[in-house]
């Protein structure tokens, strides 16, 4: 097959959008002073990352990495908690009819409550601490993981279950050696969706329930009229969300090698 990847087409649309943005600011299509130009955002972002430290005049200088660490850690912890609870629970709901009857209706009833609606509750119960943020992130990431795990378990091929039982496998072996690997692709879909929700939740939580992290900076910068920092924060969150998604995809490729073989045959 001929390679024709010489033109990086994917760059065209983002480049065009940035140009449009630049023109909108310099040509005064938008009200002056509200939207910063791309160059201004880039410059502020640079100072935010590499600045020599926060002062009265530039309170954001050099604080980017700390805030990324705060938010990243919360996402990691909340997401891990969610996965640890949701995967076993999803396996139970999908596998056991009694567990499904006991747990699934409650999950489905609570799931439509948006995590933003949980905010006052979380603050009232956990206060303006990390626990509030972890609760919201964990809860947000929990639903897609539990739903997809359940779905994956229920999708297990009946013949594979019969084959395993015919070869002497008891319920534990069937669950570990057949149901779990069979549900794994679906579980990874849940994890990908879950990590996306986790980043949404961390920003919401930090805007209101805690006083650090990218969400806090976003809201704080908005209040003091630093739209350049707001936009830089948006890009930062987007980038981190993208990276965490790629990490999960990479892990799934590693664990689901048999599946990539199937796709190519």
């Amino acid at each position: 097959m001929r390679r024709r990847l010489s033109v990086p087409w994917f760059i065209l649309l983002p480049a065009g959008l940035v140009l449009l943005w630049h023109a909108a600011v310099t040509e005064h299509w938008v009200t002056e002073g509200i939207i910063p130009a791309p160059a201004q955002v880039l410059k502020s972002w640079h100072t935010w990352i590499f600045g020599s430290g926060a002062t009265m005049l530039s309170p954001y200088s050099g604080t980017w990495l700390d805030n990324v660490a705060y938010s990243g850690q919360r996402v990691l912890q909340g997401f891990a908690l969610a996965a640890l609870a949701a995967i076993p629970l999803g396996l139970m709901i999908g596998w056991n009819r009694l567990a499904a009857r006991l747990i699934d209706p409650t999950v489905q009833l609570l799931r439509p409550v948006p995590i933003t609606a949980w905010l006052p509750f979380a603050i009232a119960v956990f206060g303006i601490y990390d626990a509030s943020a972890l609760f919201l992130i964990g809860l947000g990431a929990f639903y897609p993981i539990v739903v997809n795990t359940t779905h994956g378990v229920r999708d297990t091929n009946l013949l594979l279950l019969r084959a395993a039982r015919m070869m002497g496998a008891g319920p534990g072996t069937v669950l570990a050696k057949v149901v779990f690997p069979s549900a794994l692709p679906s579980i990874f879909t849940g994890l990908r969706l879950g990590v996306g929700v986790a980043w949404t939740a961390v920003i919401v939580a930090e805007m209101i329930a805690v006083k650090s992290g990218l969400g806090y900076v976003l809201w704080d910068a908005y209040y003091v009229g630093r739209m350049d920092i707001c936009v830089a924060t948006m890009f930062s969150v987007g980038l981190l969300g993208f990276v965490s998604d790629r990490v999960i995809v990479w892990a799934s490729r590693l664990l689901l090698r048999w599946r990539t073989l199937e796709a190519h045959v």
Partner: peptide, 11 residues
């Protein structure tokens, strides 16, 4: 049992 589909574990 040998099934009509081989029913092997793909993983």
């Amino acid at each position: 049992v040998v099934f009509q589909e081989p029913a092997l574990f793909p993983w």
